[in-house]
Design a binder for these strands. Structure first.
Length: 609
RNA sequence: CGGGGCGUAGCGCAGUUUGGUUAGCGCACUUGACUGGGGGUCAAGAGGUCGCAGGUUCGAAUCCUGUCGCCCCGACCA
């Protein structure tokens, strides 16, 4: 991991702004709306940053916009420093563009679609691979014009099934998306260069935002492509599970995380006779385990997958992949796919039943009876000394004392039909793939950035080639890089808050200093507040003055809620001593008295540490 | 898409089961007085087509039908 660019957290070269509460709209509330559950949702609404307009649709009020702008500015600086150029594409995209790459189908209902007055179908852009590839195809024709990296910061639309958690998952959100174009994977100007540059830029962005984050290896998802990393803001309320190796620094998304070497042997004496047990209407592991008096970890769970493109209308007979894991583990579809080298989907229950699988009651043994079936066994399930409970391959029955060697015999040696492979989700305590002596640790995160190597998926689908040095047309290789700007705002709150409200990292706080004027009508106090504000602004500090005629308690509560890094209280007693109260948002109590002429220095110092 | 739930003042809610005066409470809002360092006190006010449309009834927030919107859990998900 590279170091962030060494910049002060705030620039002393620029003049800060001064804003008064009475000049702007900050509707703070005592109660959060009843649907708000996560801290960022509750506090952003209560502190007057956002208001809900519809499901997954929000107003960004003045405070929120200032933070968004600060995040966007940091993103811009790092993108430009990494050699990317900003542009802006339309939010409306003709549906034909998506049809060309079949992404209207891949995205499905996630794609916002509408029809114009002429009956033409249009989509509200969820990303812009198609638009930019089309632009590039029409305007770039030589390898000499590459590499290029173009980005935009723009509102995106996704018709989420279930928008939730305020800004964390909404249907309209602000995103930075960048696309790079190359004629080679590696070497000078190759995709790898740009990918590394983006990786570094992203590390810089989130470091400069003042966030604690983890970079994880990730599945590339429906957007396609090969390598991919996710940037996760560490927060216990995050939706994503990530695993870390404390020894090597390796980290990965749960979908992707490999598991270190594990011992597996089918040899071992049976513990008893294979015993059938009646387990009516109990396809689930937990119910069965309870009924049989065993724990899920003592059971074998066998999931039936079908190889895509076999069976059904394809003309060829269906081929099946069985994935056998310990009952308390979760099968990982991506790993199953990699282990068998075929694209698979969870088998259709009806078809699988017809083929002879008693879905819900399947045992590994069934491969002897159903044609075209391959069995993948996770090492933790492939233990011969263990008396397993598993399905009986007929509805409503399970068996106890399943012994691999006794039940399966020589079948286990048939490499074409049985294989041991890592096919389950990693979890805390599993051996690290990078250092088998270390155990993986689990954490939660919020995905705020994602970089992909797209390869030629879009350029190929859309016929984007350029003339190469060798006088031949060569396909263009692409990368794509996203940052959820509005989500970063929410993730920051998710990570940085206490019981009283938001605790902004200085670089993305809407303002740096919050001046509470105890009696705004008092001339001396008003003047002192104004003077301090002007001097702070001169030093590059963004200042917010609470000049409302409110009671002190209300003002302090609101200040905590809004969460600016520094609070300066202008009141009679301190002022009589030529001082104001200085308090960091993270400090307890009233704060310390700081002489008026030392306030600027003290504030700048606090903001930069 | 499966399961559960909610639409009553800006926000949070009661009232709906068992139809019956003028639809109520807290916060917020307005005015005045007091108060003045962690969401004050008192007084007086303003604010509602009870989501929408139909129906039943002498009478509907309440019952019926339809419809729209929203939320939670799950599934799904750059």
């Amino acid at each position: 991991m590279t170091q962030a660019t060494q910049l002060p957290l705030i620039s002393t070269a620029r003049r800060g702004v001064v804003k008064r509460w009475t000049q702007t709209l900050i509707p703070t509330t005592r109660d959060a709306p009843s649907d708000a559950e996560t801290p960022s949702h509750i506090f952003l609404v209560r502190a007057g940053y956002i208001r809900r307009v519809g499901a997954g649709i929000y107003d960004y009020l003045p405070l929120a916009l200032r933070s968004l702008m600060k995040i966007a500015d940091i993103v811009r600086e790092e993108m430009e420093a990494a050699g990317a150029s900003e542009m802006l594409m339309p939010a409306l995209e003709p549906i034909e563009l998506f049809e060309g790459t079949k992404r209207n189908i891949e995205y499905g209902d996630l794609l916002f679609q509408l029809e114009d007055r002429h009956g033409r179908k249009v989509a509200l852009g969820p990303t812009h691979e198609e638009v930019i590839t089309e632009l590039m195809r029409l305007s770039v024709s030589s390898y000499k014009q590459l590499p290029l990296n173009l980005y935009q910061i723009q509102t995106k639309f996704r018709d989420e099934f279930r928008p939730r958690a305020g800004l964390l998952r909404c249907r309209e959100f602000i995103m930075k998306d960048a696309y790079s174009f190359h004629t080679a994977l590696d070497g000078d100007g190759g995709l790898d260069d740009a990918y590394q540059a983006m990786y570094r830029a992203y590390v810089n962005v989130f470091t400069r935002c003042g966030l604690r984050f983890t970079v994880v290896e990730a599945e590339s998802g429906p957007i396609g492509g090969s390598a991919s990393h996710e940037f996760m803001v560490d927060a216990p309320t995050g939706e994503d599970t990530i695993l870390r190796c404390p020894a090597s620094g390796y980290a990965a998304n749960v979908e992707k995380c490999e598991i270190g070497p594990r011992e597996s042997s089918f040899e071992g004496d049976p513990a008893g006779h294979l015993e059938e047990a009646h387990t009516p209407s109990m396809p689930g592991i937990h119910g069965v385990a309870e009924h049989l008096g065993v724990t899920p970890a003592q059971m074998l769970k066998t999931i039936v997958f079908q190889v895509i493109g076999t069976g059904g209308d394809s003309g060829s007979p269906p081929r099946w992949i069985l994935a056998c894991v310990r009952g308390d583990h979760e099968v990982n579809e991506g790993k199953v796919r990699d282990a068998c080298g075929e694209k698979v989907i969870l088998a259709d229950e009806k078809l699988a039943n017809q083929a002879g699988f008693a879905i819900g009651y399947v045992s590994p043994k069934i491969i002897d009876r159903v044609q075209n079936t391959t069995l993948l066994i996770d090492p933790d399930a492939g233990q011969g000394t263990f008396a397993w409970a598993t399905g009986a391959d007929k509805p409503d029955f399970h068996v106890k004392n399943f012994n691999w060697r006794r039940e399966m015999g020589a079948l286990l040696e048939d490499q074409s039909r049985v294989r041991v492979a890592d096919i389950r989700n990693a979890e805390a305590g599993d051996p690290s793939p990078k250092d088998p002596s270390a155990k993986l640790e689990e954490g939660r995160g919020i995905e705020v950035g994602h970089i992909f190597k797209l390869g030629d998926k879009y350029s190929k689908a859309m016929g984007f080639e350029v003339m190469g040095e060798n006088q031949k047309r060569t396909p263009v290789i692409m990368g794509c890089y996203g940052i959820g700007v509005s989500r970063t705002l929410a993730a920051s709150v998710e990570q940085n808050h206490d019981d009283n409200g938001i605790v902004w990292p200085a670089p993305i706080a809407p303002y740096h200093a919050h001046i509470v004027v105890m009696k705004p009508d008092d001339e001396a106090q008003a003047k002192a507040a104004h003077d301090i504000a002007e001097r702070l602004a001169g030093a590059g500090v963004d200042v917010f003055i609470d000049d409302r005629a409110e009671r002190p308690g209300v003002k302090f509560k609101d200040a905590d809620l809004i969460g600016l890094p520094i609070r300066l209280t202008v009141a009679d007693k301190a002022l009589a001593e030529g001082a104001v109260e200085f308090k960091r948002r993270t400090d307890e109590g009233k704060g310390e008295l700081v002489p008026l002429d030392a306030v600027v220095e003290r504030s700048v110092e606090a903001l930069n540490t």
